[in-house]
Design a protein around this nucleic acid. Structure first.
Lengths: 225, 225
DNA sequence: CGAAGTATTGACTACCTTCAAAAATTGTGG
DNA sequence: CCACAATTTTTGAAGGTAGTCAATACTTCG
């Protein structure tokens, strides 16, 4: 049974685990501008990044130009863990981002000499798997409306802040990013958001800011039927 | 660019890594009959299993009864790695299976005292992430025909054996399993397989055995356009 | 051999996509 | 700060792919 509660979408645990990395190994900070790549699929995977602020996206491309966005990474999240020599996704900054840079030992998935680091990385990878499993449910089982509603809910849990009219959520990514994350078209995303707006579930000050005015309605839209 | 080559679908690396687990920690063997559960979502995650022979499936359920199959696990694969106290998927035997049983230390994701075990688990989890990323591409970007063709190709790479008429592949799972793995209906899977059969791409001795008679045609069906 | 379960096939429908155009937003230079 | 161009988002109309409902054929197993 899928109910996108605070718990299932929360990243407080991620943050706690990721925080333990700080200070254990040297980690210079890097700045990347919105739209710019961090790495490409196939690049040598010699660096793991931790998002400090901003949002990055990982994606895979099909030969016909279609794109699947795998994940949006928020502050605390790790990007770039690979089991072999090369990255398996594209990765770009959605907004301007600051990142902590962890260099891997030559060819080795762990970095530094601290064996506990490996355990932290394992913990994080296992969490990533759990998050991806939720994403699968969305791609395979849900209608367009359910997908968009679930997406807004998950963002609300990650980065929503209480405001005058309800939980206020920033949508730093473009409609095309949302579409490619949910496996629908830009038009469908736009139409669905409009529908949620006209039915009074959300308020849309501008295309990149959503206010959830009826949380219960949004939750039921996310698991309708 | 997604071309389901032997490389992208091969599990030879998985097997090599998984093999290193053998003998390092006590691992009794368990037998589970086809259709029977190994564990349910929410169960205490105190065991990691390694498939010896047979096939198991992991899945997640929606409150409306819809199901998303996350993965089919073949010999060598690990099932049941979790970052917290409980399993995050359902898990059942597709066929009769033999499993190696690894008990975890209380609440700890690693088992045994060997720190290298943790590195192996991390390696495996990272591979699982890479595999799931390919699966995402299938769910989000592909048509029904492309999904079924890609699925048959991936099975061919995992368990196909050369035969008289081409690569022979066993389909131990039901049509409903394939449908829930690909995010389509049973009818669509059936119709698509029939189409591949009538166009001479595959031969179907019976519903659970496929012979790939035209590998190039199948590959192009998997990445058409 | 018969019953239950599974797979295939058919007809119709609906949701989402595609193609196209208008509206709104963002960014840039004067 | 405003104007204009480029990009992004929204909206509209038509069509197609896959879903739903229903019936038949095939397997499997007691």
């Amino acid at each position: 049974m899928f109910v996108p509660t605070m718990k299932s979408f929360s990243n407080t645990v991620e943050k706690a685990v990721a925080a333990r990395l700080e200070g254990r190994v040297p980690a210079p900070v890097k700045h990347v501008e919105a739209g710019q790549p961090l790495f490409h699929e196939g690049d040598m995977a010699n660096t793991v990044f931790q998002v400090i602020d901003g949002v990055v996206r990982t994606s895979k491309l099909l030969s016909n130009g279609k794109r699947q966005i795998i994940s949006f990474c928020y502050p605390g999240d790790l990007v770039g863990i690979s089991h072999d020599q090369s990255y398996h996704t594209e990765c770009e900054a959605v907004s301007d981002v600051h990142l902590r840079v962890f260099r891997k030992n030559a060819g080795n998935i762990r970095f530094g000499d601290d064996p506990e680091i490996v355990e932290l990385l394992l913990h994080f990878a296992a969490m990533e798997v759990a998050n991806m499993q939720e994403h699968f449910l969305m791609l395979g089982c849900k209608t367009a409306t359910e997908k968009v509603a679930s997406f807004l809910l998950s963002l609300a849990c990650r980065s929503g802040v209480p405001g005058q009219l309800g939980i206020s959520v920033s949508l730093p990514m473009k409609r095309a990013d949302i579409a490619d994350y949910l496996g629908v078209t830009i038009e469908t995303v736009s139409r669905t958001i409009t529908k949620l707006k006209t039915t009074g579930v959300i308020f849309l000050p501008d295309p990149h800011n959503v206010c959830i005015t009826d949380m219960e309605a949004l939750k039921s839209a996310a698991e309708k039927n």
